[in-house]
Design a protein around this nucleic acid. Sequence first.
DNA 1: CAGTGGTCTAGACCACCAA
DNA 2: TGGTGGTCTAGACCACTGC
Lengths: 259, 259
Amino acid sequence: MPSAPSATDTPSADVAVDEGAAPAFSPLYQQIKTLILQRLECGDWKPGEMIPSENDLALRFRVSQGTVRKAIDELAGDNLLIRRQGKGTFVATHAERHVQYRFLKLRSDSGEAQPSERRVLDCRRVRASADVARALQLRSGEAVMQARRVLLFAGIPRVLEDIWLPGQTFKGLTAERMGSYQGPTYAMFELEFGVRMVRADEKLRATAATADHALLLDVAQTSPLLCVERLSFTYNDAPMELRRGFYRTDSHHYHNQLN
Amino acid sequence: MPSAPSATDTPSADVAVDEGAAPAFSPLYQQIKTLILQRLECGDWKPGEMIPSENDLALRFRVSQGTVRKAIDELAGDNLLIRRQGKGTFVATHAERHVQYRFLKLRSDSGEAQPSERRVLDCRRVRASADVARALQLRSGEAVMQARRVLLFAGIPRVLEDIWLPGQTFKGLTAERMGSYQGPTYAMFELEFGVRMVRADEKLRATAATADHALLLDVAQTSPLLCVERLSFTYNDAPMELRRGFYRTDSHHYHNQLN
DNA sequence: CAGTGGTCTAGACCACCAA
DNA sequence: TGGTGGTCTAGACCACTGC
């Protein structure tokens, strides 16, 4: 451990001190990971920004560069940070061209394709139903923002989505703001509401189109649709968005890679 | 690099020698990864077996332990190896209790659940249709094994699967052998045919039940089913199995985690 | 050129496991 | 107790980026 008594940054960094007896052993790099995570959570380092260099962090935290490296490696593996050789390490963001629509797994059968158009049909403040409240860890009846939109691929409506967001955090969200923003909606959430979606759980089912679906997706009633229910989380495993999508899977499919 | 001239193991290990000018730079640990992969591919180290220790490999390959470590770390990340502290590093296998049914993402809505029963309806040698041949990289009309089975969850039929395998490799596969084997089918493939499935691509669609499906899955005709087309790969990204499954998603769902 | 991440080493010590 | 993987260090050198 370097002896330099300067550049102390985190007075709370009791790193490298094994206190007490009962608490389970925690490797140094895990503690460093936690410290970095705290900076991300509290918005100290924002999406798209560069974080201090490995050497810098090593000095601040009073550990070797290799230890910081391992911490950053794991965070980069979780898509929380992005390393760029020669440039630095950056906070991941949904705004990047390369990883845009990271959570949208619908592909055209012939290969790629991204939504060509987005139509926001509705966005309003409502009271949370029981299941929405449960998913978002709110009290039943609490205010939530509810939006509905259609995604078009090559001019054809393929996805109908209902979205629920905590009313507290997303106060002021309107159909206008959702529709006019260029780029992924999750990028807008970062920029305008300071919320970064980190991971998500999806539950998929096959369902029959209702009259509503049929109209909005331009298919026959009772025709099969892929129902995708997504719960997205920010830092700290806090649920921040519930989304129920209905996908037309004629000539498109949901692609999943299993390791 | 240690100077010990002993314990040479791989005469082909030109590791640490940057030859030529044109070929792109390849880190040492990548080359080590390749060497380990070759051992796995050629069946030198079989599923479930322990591979040599890090120190042993470091000596064989004439590199430092840290370099071997990084190579193994990545292979473990890809689920090709499994590290067990205090015991050693092992070749991953589908036979392990903990990761059984790793590729089956169907869960009951109330939580977990694994298939309680497996009924093999059919297994025979046929000529590959055009699309099966394309997926498995065979010539159209070449021999393939084709099987059909039903998976039951808590006594209820939930999954109907058609499976296609290269006839060459899976010669001798019968319904009897598929049905009587205890444990995952992929574990049997490892044990009896020396084929380990490493990863898979899945394409999901919502479809309407045909008369066939209705009968075998005990649902009404045209009722929505989740169609899961899976292409599984062995080492070297060689396609080794095509599987088309139809899932009943009443009270069950396909679960996916997005990072 | 300086600064960043990427690779590689050599050695120390720790945690875990089995005999 | 000895062997295995797991952590941590300190320092060297390389590859990439941008000024």
